[in-house]
Design a protein around this nucleic acid. Structure first.
Lengths: 207, 207
DNA sequence: GAATCAATACCACTTTAGTAGTAATTTAAT
DNA sequence: ATTAAATTACTACTAAAGTGGTATTGATTC
């Protein structure tokens, strides 16, 4: 039995979804919420399996709702519902902790399929959204910068990124600390920076 | 006309795919390769739209092949082919620059669909793989550590992450540099570290 | 009202990091 | 073969970072 929750402001859609879920063997929906605020208030602790959440809610949006709820409901998967394929919103929602999404006018059987899919560890989504996500996590390394550094300089930069001190780096690479200093000075000059942190931020930007 | 390439060691599969692609209006396959090495040698410059690549190739694997090729063929999308749903390999391939994947015994019509999909900017993949990817890019912040720091300490940590010097931080926050030092000393103690870089690595780990 | 914590500030001191210039040796490329 | 770049190494100096201790104030909690 998959325990489903619904967060949806539109009465008709909300009741329609509830009827669909409760009318299907293997699914049950005992909790529906009209707003993000209501959901944030009551949802934690209910231990639902899947929550259908409208992405565009009046007041606090479904995305902000997830941002708050996800850390409190680790075991619950969130399936976003949107009226059209709003790539940006969906993308943001997924980043915030949603696991998939469906378009609202999806046929009922497909909605149930999506709920089952997400419950079983899938992420129902269009291949177009999938591509955007794949791209965002592909390690598009900033080769330009790293390639301007020599092999040794790159080694040293990696050591710097670990927080090692000059002495530790020189021991590890079996060269004098003076040489390490020299390399680092050259690195800083190439990257046009004045400190370790600046260099690392240029070479390995964080997300 | 979608220009397709094929990298596949098995003669039968390779020729089967080639026939399928060339026998379909709107698709053409003028280049097939038996190995990663061959592909790496000849593929750059061909400006293909989509390359079907076997994930398990003798010699250099399809994954390593992509790692080398992707930076040289930014305009080419890679569609991995695998005999079974090998989540780990597929995941790695996507990280390396592939855009989607199909299971080898997919019916021909679906293969063509996948090629079209990837060409039009989609990422054909199962929802199970999609979930893994979504999870990997969800910003699962390490709240535990950050929450152990006070509001002010977090502000200062952010300033540290930008590479600012103590003087710059104190100016920015309108407090004395001595106070900044004190805060930083407390941060280091809480995080059990001895330097800025170590602190940042603990607080904001890079991927 | 006492205790705790966060934020502020200062002093004294040590260590590490960064800047500047020079130079020998090796490796790769023209 | 000569040039260019990379790697190695040194000295001398300055600036910044890190360590240790103490202390005051205001807010929050018990």
């Amino acid at each position: 039995m998959i325990k489903v929750g619904i967060v949806e402001d539109d009465l008709h859609i909300r009741e329609g979804l509830r009827l669909l879920v409760n009318g299907t063997p293997g699914f049950s929906c005992l909790h529906v919420f009209e707003s993000s605020e209501e959901a944030i208030d009551q949802l934690p602790g209910l231990n639902l399996n899947v929550v259908l959440m409208d992405i565009h809610l009046p007041g606090k949006s479904g995305i902000n709702c997830i941002i708050q709820l996800k850390p409190l409901c680790k075991e619950t998967s969130f399936l976003m519902c949107t009226s059209y394929e709003d790539t940006e919103s969906v993308f943001t929602a997924l980043k915030a902790g949603a696991s998939g999404y469906i378009i609202k006018n999806t046929p009922p059987s497909k909605i149930l399929e999506a709920i089952t899919d997400i419950y079983q560890g899938g992420s129902p989504m269009s291949s177009h959204i999938a591509r955007k996500i794949v791209q965002s996590f592909q390690t598009t390394e900033n080769n330009t910068i790293l390639e301007s550094l020599s092999k040794r300089e790159n080694e040293i930069l990696i050591a710097l990124s670990k927080g090692l001190r000059y002495k530790e780096i020189s021991d590890q690479l079996c060269i004098s600390t003076e040489t390490v200093r020299k390399h680092i000075r050259n690195i800083y000059q190439k990257l046009q920076v004045q400190s370790r942190t600046e260099a690392l931020n240029k070479a390995y930007p964080r997300s």
